[in-house]
Computed example of a mutant assay.
Amino acid sequence: MTTTDSAAAVARQTGAAAPRLPGAWRLGLLRGALEVRLFFRRREQVVFTFAFPIVFLFLFASIFGDDMAGTGATASQYYVASMIAAGIMSTSFQSLGISIAVERDEKMLRRLRGTPMPPAAYFLGKIWLVLVTGVLETALLLVFGTAVYGLDLPADVSGWLTFGWIFVLGITGCALLGIAISSVPKSSRSATSVVVLPFLVLQFISGVYILIDTVPNWMLTVGSFFPLKWMCQGLRGVFLPQAAAALEPAGSWEYGRAALVLGAWCVGGLVLCLLTFRWKNRSDG
């Protein structure tokens, strides 16, 4: 018998009111703190999560680091902005898609579902983990980009506000998509390949690894249906000079369309989660 059950039994015998369980928000915060502690205890995962985009940024910036004529920016600075967007998606979509699939396969979700903890607390815990890792990932890339490649940070409040709504909408939509795609792998063994493959493809067709003006039009069309392309474009608008907008297909940063697409993915991702999420594998019945 648990402590809570014992307290409830005593309350019934004495006629006192049963102790009130913490609400979903408080349990979600506690669950989030647990998720963050568990994440930082896995040293290999921490190193891979935070070092991977910096290593790739260094490689691509070293290979394609020349000035982009007529834009007032270098290819290195272009890659910093785009890699920040990829880092946001990595800490949300990729991280949740793999980790939740593994937890489902190991029956952890099934055991949690059998506890008094509200289901919302589990997802709130994951959201706290995504926010912490996403903020840290972004901060590291900004520090590295400004120190090594001379990235210019926004000089006014409006620039930071634009960065803020792109970050919030982007990480929310990608996190919801990560929760939704976690139901696709049949086991933990296939989770990494199922989740990483579409993420890798999106990085190539969304202007992360290849300059946007060299990506074929049909690939840009496909990429424009997904959030990563608009996060990349929006963040380039935040950190690159206005003249660099000439590289974009529309010749502008298209903030309105970016907000519309990212907002739509937040709504669509939530619907997909509600329709597809499962607490146990298909083989468990």
Rank of each mutant, 00 (worst) to 15 (best):
Cys266Pro: 01
Met219His: 03
Leu272Phe: 12
Ala246Arg: 14
Val36Cys: 07
Gly72Tyr: 07
Phe239Trp: 05
Glu44Ile: 15
Phe239Glu: 02
Thr172Trp: 05
Pro118Ala: 01
Val238Pro: 09
Ile171Ala: 05
Arg282Glu: 14
Asp67Met: 06
Ala11Leu: 03
Asp105Cys: 07
Trp25Ser: 10
Val143Cys: 03
Arg278Asn: 06
Val194Phe: 09
Leu129Cys: 04
Gly173Gln: 08
Phe52Glu: 14
Thr71Ile: 02
Ala245Asn: 09
Gly125Ile: 01
Ala250Phe: 02
Phe40Arg: 02
Pro249Thr: 07
Ala51Ser: 13
Leu200Gly: 11
Gly70Pro: 09
Gly256Pro: 00
Tyr209Trp: 14
Gln13Pro: 04
Gly125Phe: 00
Phe163Asn: 06
Ala244Ser: 14
Arg12Phe: 03
Glu248Cys: 00
Arg282Val: 12
Ser76Met: 09
Ile171Phe: 00
Leu140Pro: 00
Ala121Arg: 06
Thr276Gly: 07
Asp152Ala: 15
Gly207Asn: 09
Phe93Tyr: 11
Val194Arg: 08
Gly256Leu: 02
Phe56Gly: 13
Val201Tyr: 09
Ala16Tyr: 11
Val47Phe: 08
Arg110Phe: 12
Ser62Asp: 13
Val80Phe: 05
Ala8Asn: 12
Leu235His: 06
Val238Ile: 11
Val47Gly: 04
Leu124Thr: 01
Thr2Asp: 02
Asp66Lys: 12
Val36Ser: 04
Phe167Ala: 01
Gly150His: 05
Arg12Trp: 07
Tyr122Ile: 14
Phe199His: 10
Leu169Pro: 01
Phe225Gly: 04
Arg257Phe: 10
Phe56His: 10
Ser183Leu: 10
Arg282Gln: 07
Ala244Trp: 09
Arg31Ser: 15
Met219Thr: 04
Ala9Asn: 14
Thr91Ala: 11
Met1Ser: 05
Gly164Ser: 15
Arg113Asn: 08
Pro227Cys: 08
Pro19Trp: 04
Trp128Pro: 10
